[in-house]
Amino acid sequence: MTALHDAPPAAAKPRPPAVSPGDGRQGAAVVRRTLAYLALTVVAVLVLVPFAWMVSSSLKRDNEVFTVPVQWIPDELQWSNFVEIWDRIPLLTYLGNSAFLSVTITLLQLLTGSFAAYGFSKVRFPGRDVLFLVYIATIAVPWQAYMVPQYIMMQQAELTNTYWSIILLQAFGAFGVFLMRQYYMSIPDELCEAARIDGLSEYGIYWRIMLPLSKPALASLALLTFVNTWNDYMGPFIYLTSNELWTVQLGLRSFVGQYDAEYAMIMTGAVLSVLPILVIFLLGQRYFIQGIATSGLKG
């Protein structure tokens, strides 16, 4: 009996580590995040392929642009294309015209869009919501439906072949009002009510409160308007006939001849025309992304 009592106790078996349900959820979240990043990477590559082809083609000869298979790195880089294009067409004039129209229309769009959006979001008046819906419904009307009436109006006003025709038609857009109103709706009404109690006018509320708080939305609207105006081809093509008024999009069209086209020069001009937009986006991408992410929080 003594020997039995003196025997050492059997070693306890180690317990398996407990697996919490949270570990499985975290693993699934990591997998989903990884797949999402892979999908975004594939989409980004697909989006950048045309841009890479454009840059590659700008450094080739005309007969090398459409070779099959695609030669992404030419045997001999034609850097002379970026020098020759300035002598072939007045590219500096075209870039200046595009910059003038883009900056002017963007500034007017910011002013009119933000001001109208303030009235539709923070000022109460009879029929406000109905008027806003009717105004926004014009976005659904295709531009081709009123292209001819607009041209007749500009022709009778003797504004064709002038910048005024482009500016007046594009400086007042329903999309800008919609974007800014969605952002203004996310700003508490109590700020405006407190400002009114303190004696601030509606113009003062708009200028001193709403505009400083809406920098992300303004940056988004500015970038979208600038890019849309810069890339516009049909508007200048219809209303501008003088060569000295042409934008860069019309200027690049001059390389397309009757029987052939200088595709390498077209790609060179396209690369130069994209650079201003690229610089502007890189400078304002933080505000642009923030404005797009927050403009639909409340509506």
Results as ranks from 00 to 15, higher is better:
residue 77 L to V: 15
residue 25 R to F: 12
residue 201 S to I: 04
residue 20 S to H: 15
residue 201 S to V: 09
residue 104 T to E: 10
residue 108 L to H: 08
residue 231 N to I: 09
residue 75 D to R: 12
residue 39 A to M: 11
residue 204 G to Y: 03
residue 289 I to G: 02
residue 41 T to E: 03
residue 266 I to E: 01
residue 186 S to T: 09
residue 72 W to Q: 02
residue 148 V to T: 12
residue 259 Y to W: 15
residue 173 G to V: 02
residue 228 N to M: 13
residue 122 K to N: 05
residue 289 I to M: 10
residue 52 A to N: 10
residue 96 G to C: 01
residue 197 I to H: 04
residue 194 A to S: 15
residue 60 K to T: 06
residue 103 V to R: 04
residue 7 A to P: 01
residue 160 T to W: 07
residue 206 Y to M: 00
residue 274 V to G: 12
residue 229 T to W: 05
residue 177 V to F: 05
residue 150 Q to H: 05
residue 158 E to P: 01
residue 246 W to Y: 11
residue 262 E to D: 14
residue 45 V to K: 07
residue 64 E to I: 09
residue 260 D to T: 14
residue 165 S to F: 00
residue 47 V to M: 15
residue 167 I to K: 05
residue 299 G to D: 09
residue 188 P to T: 05
residue 82 F to D: 06
residue 2 T to V: 10
residue 160 T to H: 10
residue 91 L to R: 05
residue 112 T to M: 12
residue 183 Y to L: 03
residue 43 V to P: 02
residue 201 S to P: 06
residue 252 L to M: 15
residue 297 L to F: 08
residue 199 G to P: 04
residue 111 L to G: 03
residue 195 A to Q: 12
residue 178 F to V: 05
residue 132 F to M: 05
residue 181 R to Q: 09
residue 235 G to Q: 09
residue 248 V to K: 01
residue 178 F to Q: 02
residue 241 T to A: 11
residue 47 V to H: 09
residue 72 W to F: 14
residue 175 F to V: 10
residue 159 L to H: 02
residue 276 P to I: 05
residue 294 T to I: 03
residue 276 P to V: 02
residue 141 V to D: 07
residue 130 V to S: 07
residue 243 N to F: 08
residue 139 I to W: 08
residue 122 K to A: 04
residue 64 E to R: 10
residue 111 L to A: 11
residue 239 Y to H: 00
residue 165 S to L: 00
residue 105 I to Q: 02
residue 58 S to R: 05
residue 233 Y to I: 01
residue 74 P to V: 06
residue 230 W to C: 06
residue 231 N to G: 09
residue 137 A to K: 10
residue 97 N to V: 11
residue 216 P to S: 02
residue 289 I to L: 12
residue 184 Y to P: 06
residue 27 G to F: 07
residue 173 G to L: 01
residue 292 I to H: 03
residue 282 L to H: 03
residue 51 F to L: 14
residue 227 V to H: 01
residue 265 M to R: 01
residue 120 F to P: 00
residue 158 E to F: 12
residue 161 N to P: 03
residue 197 I to R: 01
residue 126 P to Q: 04
residue 152 I to W: 11
residue 287 Y to R: 08
residue 166 I to W: 06
residue 247 T to R: 08
residue 125 F to T: 03
residue 266 I to A: 04
residue 145 A to I: 13
residue 238 I to P: 04
residue 168 L to R: 07
residue 210 M to S: 09
residue 159 L to P: 05
residue 281 F to C: 07
residue 273 S to E: 00
residue 109 Q to P: 01
residue 251 G to H: 07
residue 38 L to W: 07
residue 5 H to F: 12
residue 108 L to N: 09
residue 23 D to K: 13
residue 16 P to K: 13
residue 3 A to M: 08
residue 289 I to T: 11
residue 68 V to T: 12
residue 250 L to H: 01
residue 23 D to E: 13
residue 103 V to K: 03
residue 225 T to Q: 15
residue 101 L to W: 10
residue 102 S to G: 11
